[in-house]
Amino acid sequence: MTDIKKDIQNKANSNSPLGVGGSVEIGKTAKYLREKLGGIPQQAKDNLKEYNGIKKQMLEALKEQDLTVKQMAEKINMPTDQVVYYLMSLVKYGFVKTGEVDDMDEYYTYKLNK
């Protein structure tokens, strides 16, 4: 178990104001846990912020034209391996789709999934 997880669980278990099955309204339990924990880990916040930024940059870039990984890397100034990771995640979530492969059968272009 990671330390963060342990920490969260210890906190959750130790100062449960409402107890299990208490009066927390179904569908609004996230707020309950956030209050109980007194916030969320900084790392999770940072990660989300970074991803949102990159997602925005990538989708903006693809608005102009379809791009390969290399072209995207140059355009948004990011290492190609990072581009693969984020771009493929965006493909998975349906924001981006895979286009054609080049003549050499080497690199695919990626485009917005409208």
Partner: peptide, 23 residues
Amino acid sequence: DNCTLCGACEKACPTNCIDFTQE
């Protein structure tokens, strides 16, 4: 570890199965 406890999942869930009060 990575959840921001924003509650979006809870709102989206049609069966109300998400439960952050679990211990």
